[in-house]
């Protein structure tokens, strides 16, 4: 399951928007507008549903919730601790 986190997150982002050429795992997808205020609810629900985790307001405000790298770390941690 852990190996599937990054591809899943990447596909979600690609579905939302064509990614900029220089986009990588550390790029800020919120600042770039790839996940905007319109799309964030579905983005969160898709992550929660796929990985059976709970994403809180504090998680959304955190620096982790801005890059693929940060999200993979967050999801891994939540899955290890049961959500």
């Amino acid at each position: 399951m852990q190996d599937s986190i990054r591809p899943f997150v990447l596909e979600l982002l690609e579905k939302k928007s064509r990614l900029p050429k220089n986009f990588d795992d550390t790029s800020d997808f919120i600042k770039a507008g790839i996940v905007d205020s319109m799309g964030i609810i579905k983005f969160i629900l898709e992550l929660e549903s796929r990985f059976k985790i709970e994403i809180t307001e504090a998680d959304i405000e955190s620096g982790e919730f801005r890059s693929i790298q940060g999200l993979v770390t967050m999801i891994n941690r939540k899955m290890a601790t049961g959500g």
Binding site: R18, I30, K31, A32, G33, I34, D36
Partner: peptide, 8 residues
């Protein structure tokens, strides 16, 4: 612009 954020 392909996507909007205030900064972008």
């Amino acid at each position: 612009m392909s996507r909007f954020s205030a900064t972008a």
